[in-house]
Computed example of a mutant assay.
Amino acid sequence: MDQRPNGGPLAFNTMRLTWPDLPHRVRDRVADLAGAEVVNARGTTTGFGPGFAGIVDLANGTRVFVKATGEHEHPWSIGLARAELRANAALPETVPAPRLLWSDQGAWTLAGFECLEGASPSLPWSTSDLGRVFDALTDLARTPLTPGHALIPIVTSDTEFFTVWESFAKRPKQERLAAAARGGRWGEWALRHVDTFVAWECEAAAACAGGALVHGDLRADNVVIDTCGKAWMVDWPHATVGAPWLDLAFFLPSVEMQGGGSALEHFRSHPLGVSVGHRELRAVVTVLTGYFMLSSWQDAPEQIPRLREFQAAQAIPAARWLQALEPELAG
């Protein structure tokens, strides 16, 4: 598994399209939308999407961050690309997210975003970078939603997320055993406690309900620290409305995975986490553990070969967090 020293695995996809991979008509359309000829383009391999994503330099001296996803080339990912357009249109102006400058939804979904001057956090996480993200999460949770926004509640956005363990428990026994075998000792652990997890996850939907803006997929590769030290959040296709502490909880397994310290300790020391009840937190960590663990036992999706490794690495700190909340699960 590719990783930085003591920084955990990285979210990246070497199968991403490059600028030359895009059809000429798509490159020409980007230039039309941007209002100037493209003189240079530098793609990125961070993140898991297979489409093009990168910085495009324009003949008028400006830059734009461009995403291009083809309907026929990547039919499963076009939904996320279009969801990101809807989400960015609904974000309040004060949210630390790059502005959507233009878009096009034809056979290719194209988007041009404000180009941030900065970089992803260095890994393993530094105290300073982590503190900047924690401060940004506090501000995000307190940001009023835009009146008339189109974002939907998290409890209705992905109902399967709240029943991951129940769905697993209903599978035929041989299928459960074969899937769990991929998880080694953690698979054995999951099989021993699956009935308990099914009971706890029943409380997750109620725990997640709320009226705050939720990014829903925050991790290091979806953060940019700009040249002034401000933390920006990018890639918003999973944005929903829910409890104000959810992004903190969703974020922390990846933090622990990438050398940033204990998820449990960070949660309980953060202003958004101190007042969350034990049962609510247990329910959410239960579904987080199930999501990462059970997903990691599946075959990798086409054109995203690293995803399952990354999910497996997040499953371990999530499971340890659950064990810390309920010590009888240890061992």
Rank of each mutant, 00 (worst) to 15 (best):
N40P: 00
N40W: 01
A41D: 01
A41Y: 09
G43V: 05
G43L: 03
G43C: 03
G43I: 01
T45K: 09
T45P: 03
T46E: 05
T46G: 01
T46M: 08
F48Q: 00
F48D: 00
G49N: 07
G49W: 01
G49V: 00
P50G: 09
G51P: 07
G51T: 04
G51N: 09
G51S: 09
G51Y: 04
F52N: 00
A53N: 08
G54M: 14
I55R: 15
I55D: 13
I55F: 04
D57F: 03
D57I: 06
D57A: 15
L58S: 08
L58D: 04
L58A: 02
G61K: 14
G61W: 05
T62G: 11
F65S: 05
F65K: 08
V66D: 10
V66S: 06
V66W: 04
K67F: 02
K67Y: 08
K67H: 12
A68W: 01
A68K: 02
E71W: 01
H72F: 03
H72D: 14
E73V: 09
E73I: 03
E73T: 14
E73C: 02
H74C: 02
H74E: 08
H74M: 12
P75D: 13
P75S: 14
P75L: 15
W76T: 09
S77W: 10
S77P: 00
S77A: 14
I78R: 06
G79Y: 05
G79T: 07
G79W: 06
L80G: 09
A81L: 02
A81G: 03
A81K: 00
A81D: 07
R82C: 11
A83Q: 10
A83P: 02
E84H: 09
E84Q: 13
E84V: 10
E84C: 08
L85Q: 12
L85F: 06
L85Y: 05
R86S: 04
A87Y: 13
N88D: 12
A89Q: 13
A89I: 06
A90Q: 03
A90R: 00
L91V: 07
L91I: 09
L91W: 07
L91H: 11
P92T: 05
E93L: 10
T94N: 02
T94C: 02
V95D: 07
V95P: 11
P96V: 03
P96A: 07
P96M: 01
P96S: 04
A97M: 05
R99E: 09
L100G: 03
L100Y: 00
L100A: 11
L100K: 10
L101K: 08
W102L: 04
S103A: 14
D104S: 14
D104M: 02
D104L: 06
G106F: 04
A107E: 13
A107Q: 07
A107K: 01
W108C: 13
W108Q: 13
W108Y: 15
T109M: 06
L110C: 11
L110S: 07
L110K: 06
A111S: 15
A111G: 12
A111T: 14
G112I: 15
G112W: 10
F113A: 02
F113S: 01
F113W: 08
E114D: 10
E114P: 11
C115Q: 13
C115D: 12
C115P: 07
L116D: 14
L116T: 13
E117C: 09
E117D: 15
E117H: 13
E117I: 05
E117S: 15
E117A: 15
E117W: 08
G118W: 09
G118N: 06
A119S: 15
A119K: 12
A119W: 07
